[in-house]
Design a protein around this nucleic acid. Structure first.
Length: 217
DNA sequence: CTCCCGATAT
DNA sequence: ATATCAGGAG
């Protein structure tokens, strides 16, 4: 496990590597963000953006998503994968928004979690990106980077990873940290071919040193 | 824990 | 051919 000071060094370095880290899901309001993030489960942002480009032209409001058949909505998002669950969730989510929330996206993390297809990670992204509430959404990248570098334990659940990060990072930096870790994980500390050879954090990274040692024999 | 699932990188 | 992708629900 890294010390708070070592983690500080890691986060600062990530900031230098990716000074413009931001949400890469294209959206123009909280409603579109909820849809985009729920579509992004087990799918790349690039692919989600390709689909939402047409989707957000066709569907502007919750009523719009409910005006078509389930099959039609499935067809509009088919290339995303997991499209049956996602289409069903979107229509149920729109029903709930109209019935319980006046057609508006709730600003509260726990209220968001009540929406179908919206778990803790998605809710954290929405409150953080759309409403400026401090939060650390632990997705596949944040989890992988946290475990490789030693921000948390290898066996930690995603909730435990989130708690560890919230404990060790000042609250004012939660949102920016979350995006820096995503960029670091997506473009540098990648799942399949991590760039340990040119990584400025190799000296503090247990997994990186282990991988380099393994490679040199 | 399993299932959902197409696109892309390796 | 296989692993991975801004996970969530049952």
């Amino acid at each position: 496990m890294l010390t708070v000071k070592q983690i500080r060094h890691c986060l600062d370095t990530m900031g230098e590597m990716f000074p413009d880290a931001h949400c890469e899901l294209v959206h123009s309001n909280p409603f579109e963000l909820v849809i985009a993030v729920s579509l992004s489960a087990q799918c790349t942002d690039a692919l989600v953006n390709k689909v939402t480009k047409d989707l957000f032209q066709k569907y502007k409001t919750p009523e719009d998503y409910l005006s078509v058949s389930l099959e039609e909505l499935q067809n509009d998002i088919r290339s995303i994968g997991l499209y049956r669950n996602k289409a069903k969730n979107i229509q149920k989510l729109c029903q709930l928004l109209l019935a319980e929330y006046g057609g508006e996206v709730p600003r509260d993390r726990d209220e968001l979690t009540k929406l179908p297809g919206v778990g803790r990670k998605t809710a954290n992204v929405v409150v953080s990106v759309a409403f400026g509430v401090p939060a650390i959404a632990v997705d596949t990248h944040v989890e992988r980077v946290s475990k490789r570098l030693g921000f948390c334990r290898w066996k930690d659940s995603v909730l435990e990873v989130e708690k560890a990060l919230m404990k060790k990072v000042p609250m004012e930096e939660w949102s920016v940290t979350h995006h820096r870790m995503i960029f670091f994980g997506r473009y540098h500390c990648k799942a399949q071919r991590p760039q340990c050879e040119v990584c400025p954090l190799l000296e503090v990274c247990r997994e990186g040193k282990k991988r380099m040692k393994e490679r040199n024999k």
